[in-house]
Computed example of a mutant assay.
Amino acid sequence: MSTTTRPLLSAAGLHVAFPGRRGAAVARAVDGVDLDIRPGEIVALVGESGCGKTTLARSLLGLVPPTSGQVTFGGAPLDYGSRSLKAYRKRVQLVLQDPSGSLNPRHTVYDAVAEGLRIHGYAGDEREAVAGALSRAGLRPPERFFLRYPHELSGGQRQRVVIAGALVLEPELIVADEPVASLDASVRGEILALLLSLRDELGLSALVVTHDLGLAWNIADRVAVMYLGRIVESGPAEQVLTAPQHPYTRALLSVLPESGEVPVVLTGEPPDPSRVPGGCRFHARCQVLASGEAERTGVAADCRTTLLPVLTGGDEAQVACHWAAALRGDRPEKVGLGKEWPGKEGTATGSRTPR
C-alpha cells in the first residue's frame, strides 16, 4: 500500500466521551485516536472487549458524533447533518456481527437486500441490482434466494445476505464489526475469503473490528491494536504480527495456537474507560512491568507516571511503550512513538503464512 495515496477515511485527534450516571466519572471510550484507511486497504482494529474499538467504528460511521477531533472522508470533513449523513452512509456501509439479529425474520432475502436501495431512492433496475449484490456476495444463482427467509438459510448464507445488503449500494468502504465471530469455524474462512475477493475485484476498503488477531493475520493489510481508548501499536500486518513490540500485543498473540508461545494471562482489572490511569494506560496489567523487566530496563517509573502521545495514523510501524523504546537504545523515535517523536518505522523479522 503506497504511503503517498491519500486516505479514503481518516480520524484525527478523535475523542468520544459518555457522561456517567448520577455524577459518576465520564467514560472516555475513545481517548485520542488518529487512524487512516486508504483505498483498497483492509485495516484490522484489534482489542479485547471494552477497549473502545466498537465506539471508534461507530464514530467513523457517523453514528456517534465525536466529543472532539475530526473524521474526514475523501478529504472532506464529515458533516453530521441528516442529509449529508445519508449520502455518506451510502458510501460507507456497516456489516454487523450477528446476521440473525441484522435480518428481519419477516423479510425475504430480496427485501433485505433491496432495503438500502429503497431508502436511498435508487432509480435503476432494483431486481438487477439485488441479483448483482447477491452474486458478488457468493449466493448464486441469486434468483434462487430471492424468496427465502432468514430461518431457511445457514449462518454463512445469512452473513452473505448481510454483506450483499451493504454491497448493493456500491460503497467505497465497509466497516465489519466482528464479521465472523458468530459463525462456525468451517464457514469463517469462506467469509474472510469473500472480503479479500471484494477488495481485489472491487477495490473495496474495509475496517474489520475484531478481538481476534488470528483473523487479522489472515485478512488485514494493516493492524491497529487498541487498549483503553487508544491505539497502542499499529503498522503493516506482517510486521506487527511477527515482531510485536507492545506487551499488550504480545499477550494477545500468545494465545493463538500457531504462535508457539506460552499464553500470557493478564492480571488486574479489565479496562475501565472512566478510570484511565496515569502513565502508560496498560501499566496496571503489564506483564513486563510485573516481571521486573521494566525495572531492569530502567523505565518502570516512566511506565507508571509518564504519559505517551497519540500515535499518528500513518502506515509506518508505531508503538506507544516506554519499554519498547528502551529496547531500541533509549531512542523512542526508532519505534515511532507518536507525533512528538517522529521517526522511521521499526524493523521486523520472520514471515507469516501467505493469506
Rank of each mutant, 00 (worst) to 15 (best):
H211V: 09
L213P: 12
L213Q: 02
W217E: 14
N218D: 14
N218L: 14
N218G: 14
D221W: 08
L228I: 04
G229H: 05
R230T: 14
G235Q: 09
P236G: 10
A237C: 10
E238I: 06
E238G: 14
Q239S: 15
Q239G: 15
Q239Y: 13
V240F: 09
V240S: 09
T242I: 09
P247T: 10
P247M: 11
Y248D: 02
Y248S: 05
A251W: 07
L253F: 09
L253A: 11
V255P: 10
E261D: 15
P263M: 10
V264M: 08
V265M: 12
V265F: 13
L266P: 06
T267M: 13
G268L: 08
E269A: 15
E269P: 11
P270T: 07
P270L: 07
D272K: 08
D272F: 07
D272R: 13
P273N: 00
P273L: 01
S274D: 07
P277F: 04
G278D: 14
G278V: 13
C280D: 03
R281Q: 06
H283I: 00
A284I: 11
R285L: 00
Q287R: 15
L289K: 00
S291K: 02
S291E: 04
G292F: 00
G292T: 01
G292M: 01
E293R: 12
E293G: 01
R296E: 14
R296S: 12
T297M: 15
